[in-house]
Amino acid sequence: MKKFYPLKKGDTIGVAAPSARFDDKRLNQGIECLKNLGFQVHVPRAIFGEKRYLAGDDASRAAVVNELFADPGIRGIIAARGGFGAMRMLSYLDWDLIQKNPKLFMGFSDATALLMALIQHTQLAGVHGPNLVSLADADPKTIASFFQAITGRPKDILIPRGVCLLPGQAMGKLMGGNMATLAHLIGTPFQPDFKESVLFLEDVGEPAYKIDRMLSQMKMAGLFEGVQGVVTGSFANCENQEYIPQILSEVIDGIPLLMGLASGHGDLNLSLAMGLDVVLDTSSALLKWKPLQ
């Protein structure tokens, strides 16, 4: 059972920058959003580092994550932005320290690498939801969903425009995230294990043939073995989106498969409590969380 550590108003959220450099103005707008939701925010000076497109070198970005987990005054950690870089710093993390100082981690896109590693290496649940800069101009429904998820009240999600590719009901722990990030973890010590899971997949800016290639690689690497069901999020700015249902149906077979969850890089980015048990029902187009223990 994955452990979920919800936040409450007044708690302090620390900002990590595991991936790319960020725009300072949007970061400050995101901070104001968290404050408006009732949280305090701690911003380490080290997140403003620069190395090419990264927010500092790998060891420095990882050191911030380690320090935030070690700090008893920090109750949650949010990724500043996505881009690229989270997978590069995973080997620098102090997994024993993190496991002894559990707290909630929030992020999406490239932060998928860190989110999945935390779930698998420390048994912590987390939230696939907006990065801090994403909150700068987030849709009100995105912000409401984010608040509900991080405070331990993930709202069941009805998928009114869902496209059912294979009917059925699936139960398992919710796993997954950005498809490109997950595919690039194959063959590393941090390759994800999706057995007994309901798998969530989303991506942005990828043409259909690349989505086909990533899904095919994941299947050949065995990542779909033991998966109970699949629900997909947004495929924002992806070329030839009309091909994606065909590709999914060809690569993933024999389990419930539903498209259309409004989570990921689209205008609406609903937050998902990851690592927790869910039920995916394609007949009612519903993703439902089991009650937290």
Rank of each mutant, 00 (worst) to 15 (best):
Q169S: 08
L248I: 04
P154R: 04
K290C: 08
E242C: 07
D212K: 15
A79R: 04
K288F: 08
L257Y: 05
M116Q: 14
V231A: 07
D11G: 11
F22C: 04
I252N: 02
L182F: 10
D281N: 09
G76E: 05
A63Q: 12
A236H: 07
G229P: 01
A180G: 12
D23S: 10
D212C: 09
Q191H: 10
F4W: 00
L165S: 05
A59N: 02
Q241D: 04
L158C: 06
V231Y: 05
V127G: 06
A273Y: 03
W289H: 09
P245M: 00
D58N: 11
V251K: 08
S216L: 09
F147R: 09
P140H: 11
L261W: 02
D193H: 14
A208C: 13
E242L: 05
I31H: 03
F146A: 12
Q120C: 12
G266Y: 11
N101C: 11
H265V: 06
Q40F: 06
A262C: 13
V41A: 12
S197C: 12
S197K: 01
R153F: 01
E206N: 14
Q169M: 14
L199V: 04
T232D: 14
R52W: 10
R88P: 00
Q169D: 10
A208S: 15
T12C: 10
K8P: 00
G10P: 01
A59Q: 11
Q191A: 15
E250A: 14
G187T: 12
L182Q: 15
L174E: 01
S109N: 10
S134L: 15
S216F: 03
T232F: 04
V65R: 07
A17Q: 07
Y209I: 14
G254T: 00
I119W: 00
G233I: 07
A117D: 13
P207W: 07
L276E: 06
G177E: 12
D137K: 04
G107Y: 13
F194N: 14
L270K: 13
E250Y: 03
K51L: 15
R26V: 12
I150F: 07
S60T: 09
A262N: 14
Y92W: 03
C33F: 06
S271P: 04
P6T: 08
M116C: 11
N178W: 13
P160A: 11
L104T: 01
E32M: 13
D193K: 09
R52L: 13
L261F: 06
S234G: 12
F194G: 13
K290H: 13
A138K: 06
T188D: 15
W95T: 07
G85C: 02
A55W: 08
K2F: 04
E239C: 10
N101Y: 06
Q217P: 04
R61T: 03
P160T: 13
K8E: 13
F22H: 05
S91T: 06
Q293Y: 01
K51Q: 15
E32I: 06
G85W: 02
A144S: 12
G56T: 06
A59Y: 01
M218I: 03
